[in-house]
Amino acid sequence: MKLSIENLNSFYGSVQVLRELTLHVNTGEVLCLLGRNGAGKTTILKSIMGLVEHNGSIMLGDCEISGLGAHEIPRKGIGYVPQGRRLFAELTVKENLQIGMLIKGEDSHSLDRIFKLFPVLKERLKQESGTLSGGEQQMLAMARALCLQPGVLLLDEPTEGLMPSMIASIRDVVLKLREQGVGILLVEQRIDAVLPVANRVAFIENGYVKAEMERDELANEPDLMRHYVGI
């Protein structure tokens, strides 16, 4: 499923954060958003999910989702893993997954698919999610979003605070999802962690898309990395 954002302007109260922003995520493609803190990357994801006041066009396939209520947007086929995971910490792993399955309904087939990607969760079903390790929490956050069987997945800093082995696991899952045709919009600070899975990258600064290119072209643009990401 293709996600198309055209001329997106987003606001926190009277402050405009995104300006005439245009982006596309194709089916089975990972688009990585790069930029310094405060550039507006998370706001892009929140705008797509209807959590931030905005105008402009956001199309999912042929369906205009801009202007829909925040609770209607996941029903169209978008999964969102927010920064900091935002698990329901007092609920068990199983209950968190049940929340994820509210829209599509509970079925053992989709649960099996989830457990194939994240086998550790199967052993932790009755555990309160707040007591999981950071890596397990991130897996649960992704698993919960995948319960929606999304065509497009929004990931906000999925490797934040994780050790290298966990980062590798998350990267593997992203690759598998990409192979299954899921479009992924990925916000990440750790460039090294995500570049191997990205098809394209976009540099965001002050709410604008400053540059957009194929991942392989990035090697020829060291100045861009230095300027927009600081490395």
């Binding site: 999910m49 209520g69 925040a70 209607e72 935002r86 329901f88 910490a89 609920l91 929340i99 829209i103």
Partner: peptide, 17 residues
């Protein structure tokens, strides 16, 4: 379950319909 999810995190609850 829906009530508890809403109680714990209203915004995230919306992200799941």
């Amino acid at each position: 379950l829906v009530m508890r999810a809403t109680q714990y995190d209203r915004e995230t609850a919306q992200n799941f319909g």
